[in-house]
Design a protein around this nucleic acid. Sequence first.
RNA 1: GCCCCGGUAGCCCAACUGGCAGAGGCAGUCGGCUCAAACCCGACCCAGUAAGGGUUCGAAUCCCUUCCGGGGCACCA
Length: 1000
Amino acid sequence: MTTTTSEHSGPATEAPPFRYTPALANAIELAWQDRWEQAGTFEAPNPVGDLSSFGDGVDDGAADGAAAAAAAAVPGESFYVMDMFPYPSGKGLHVGHPLGYIATDVTGRFERMRGKNVLHALGYDAFGLPAEQYAVQTGQHPAITTDQNIAVMRRQLRRLGLAHDPRRSFATTDPEFVRWTQWIFLQIFSSWFDPDATAPDGSRGAARPVSELVGRLAAGEVALPAAFEGRTWADLTPREREDVLADHRLAFVADVPVNWCPGLGTVLANEEVTADGRSERGNFPVFKRNLRQWVMRITSYADRLVADLDPLDWPEKVKAMQRNWIGRSEGAHVHFSVATAAGERDLTVFTTRPDTLFGATYMVVAPEHPLVEELLASEEPWGADVPASWRGAAASGADTPAAAVRAYVAAASAKTLQERQADAGAKTGVFTGGYAVNPVNGERLPIFVADYVLMGYGTGAIMAVPAHDERDHAFATAYGLPIREVVSGSPSGVQESAWTGDGVAVASANDEVSLNGLAVAEAKHAIVTWLERTGQGAGTTTYRLRDWLFSRQRYWGEPFPVVYDADGRVVPIPEDMLPVALPEVADFSPRTFDVDDAASSPESPLSRATDWVNVELDLGEGLQTYRRDTNTMPNWAGSCWYYLRYLDPFDADAPVDPALERYWMGPQPGGARGETGGVDLYVGGVEHAVLHLLYSRFWHKVLFDLGHVSSREPFHKLFNQGYVQAYAYTDARGVYVPADEVEEVAAGAAGADAHEGPTFTWRGEPVTREYGKMGKSLKNMVTPDDMYAAYGADTFRVYEMSMGPLDQSRAWETRAVVGAQRFLQRLWRNVVSEDSGLVTVVDDAPDVATARLVARTIADVTTEYAAMRPNTAIAKLITLNNHLTSLPQVPRAAAEALVLMVAPVAPHIAEELWSRLGHESSLAHEAFPVADPALLVEETVTCVVQVAGKVRDRLEVAPSISDAELEAAALATPGVQRVLAGATPRTVIVRAPRLVNVVP
RNA sequence: GCCCCGGUAGCCCAACUGGCAGAGGCAGUCGGCUCAAACCCGACCCAGUAAGGGUUCGAAUCCCUUCCGGGGCACCA
């Protein structure tokens, strides 16, 4: 293409006719975007299958590198680069949104020029709340809204010139995609976690088909649960069998304590509830309720999810957040026996400090603990020796433990999670009237109910060791309970405050075991050994991670591919009947409630589609009436596996052809993708550190265990890009004013406060500056469309990439964009005459200085691009460009190298210049320049001569100079001579060829 | 409260395993082009690295303390 234009950048200007103006930039960009699309330039060939060649008939541009590459074998080296895919919100993009997309595009284009087969595509995460809420308001089906939003977003992003393979784009709402999401769900449903199985990577404990478990149950190798004692597998009804299997399935329906959010009308996963007990979306109160819901047994994988973080090339911060969330902690279960009205009961506690067992002085159970009711059965009055403070709040006026505890439990359950956490620190509780026997010394310990112990962690019961646990210490102090030191080391005494540090065990012995004198770690080991030998406990590991609540009471999500028979037994839908599509409904909204109505229950919009819910099917048991599941999957389902579908978007037989998964994602021990395999580069915001990234790792490991994928992790390298933020301004009333109309008054200028920084005015009135998100409500939004119109996409790309390190957040500054534009204008001028439009480069060889600078730039820019530092790469390109500007004539060799190196960040202008330089095909597959090593070696280097660390002189020396020669030369310099003034140096440090330091 | 990351010219940011504090951009100043201005071209100006202490021949870089900013976790037994 050769774009000729006489358009000017503005009406009143007389710019030269071939200047690189925004108008010219736009013309070039649109033309190249069309050409790329028509030629299929960025279509990445698969090694096998329907995408192994380029779009049939569409591609006549055989001259393009992509087509040439496809004709030959697929490159052996693949590079799979991905963005966390967008939710098409319809609100419109601002200049911050494309940051990550540009970054992956730059890296992808660079790697493509390095000869790799680069796969880069973008799909849409299209199920979810905004489209549903819009549907609720307007009655328009969310599918229509979603399609419209996707179309708008596609157009906006296309204008950026992203090198995506358009054939591989999809939305999670596409029926074919939903089909495979449901298929994977059924794979998980049909699997159980066999703790004794070995995974393909050698780890212990792996997913296996449930059919294997059925075989073992039928053969009696695995015992039935206690409820079915005396019966055999063959005796059980189908419903009973399913109940047995549900205890093992990786996806199962169960009555579980869930986070119920009346304001949203749905239940939420733990990860979707904020630390202060509110919904992440909408910020509504959340209550704990027991409800029948789908759950995924992610906790089975807790160990592997922790262990496999190590080999991943991820930011340490994200790894730490995942480790923290999983919260693995090693300790012991210890059995205490409790006498109740109904007889002896076991109270098992979890502790990370079994070495402090001898220091236990009381017990605490969570208000929801099942033992509570048993303890209260007796209804006996308080014993005479029970202090008043143990009897609960005076207001309750309870004269029996049962009444006091019930009042306390009721009060605790009425609290929202938020209230419960707000009260943390103030320890409250009530004595239950019961006692537990400490297995190490037979002491009777009073059992309290207190809400500082959580039912959701460990066993929901603890042994309290006030001397060595701060929480127990606070409670013991408040309730007058004894504090007994069993680990030495407290500086101020344990009566004063708990000692949780290291020390030596004291007062910790019975007839069979003594911990006295042992350090903490040894003492733990000794007591666990004793507990295990005597059957009173065992070493164990627990996790903070909870199983994943997987159902939502919403319309716009994937339906569950199961039905229930007349007995309420879950029956999976056969694979050939997938996908299960959503029914048409009149009302898309779940029933929502008053945000504080804890007693309400969820009611899904699907439950009203009775024709759909009640269905006659033949599922191999004859025609029967079944009931469908009226929940839908959470928004995370599609994003748990979408990265596999880009590889093989049209596969009708599997979510992905295993051969393609191996080629694009397979492990490369010692190579780029390491032993884990996975996507080569995954870029997105840190906000997904635990949610999406943990869930998809879990699904991936199940697919790995079942043999569907060869990689054991989905994402080998993860990169978190920063955010683009912006200044906003408020006037005296606190109302936002348009940021682009605010004027800055320099510090020290007339009228400015000399001591403060710069001040700001809007229409002459002072305004206050604040910093934060970009958005319409703050009147500081700048859109990509604004940038295309004012500068063109290339300038916008260069500016975004040059603002600073990719992983840092940065402030948008529109007035600084002109720097990027000047760079590209100068680049243009170095190749093309602004007056005639003709190419001005000459074929003469570059002078030595230019050749060296070109070589140096190639070497540096290659390093910077490869390390994802486009900001420093651009700085070096600008340096070379400025050097070429200073030459009377630009040599072709230098210009071509520069154009190729600019291509990843500013692809349109680079293609245009490349074309004008006489090349017929796109530079997208052109080899990235390689520096001539001979030119990288400096002829002379500057050696710094220091005396006592201060620079006193400089020498121009050969890089190969020896230490001795250099030392002699340095000592002879006038600078050294002057400072030393005849004295003999004590030491001379020589770091040839760069530095000599003389120590006088 | 605990943990992590950061603080370098007016602003955004560079500086390889410790070795000349400056690559690049914005803003500013001066000059060229111009009737003039903008654009453009050329040149210039600009910090001793948040503060203090330590290690070292030598510290922006390593260690300690403090301050400031950003983020994560927070009754997890």
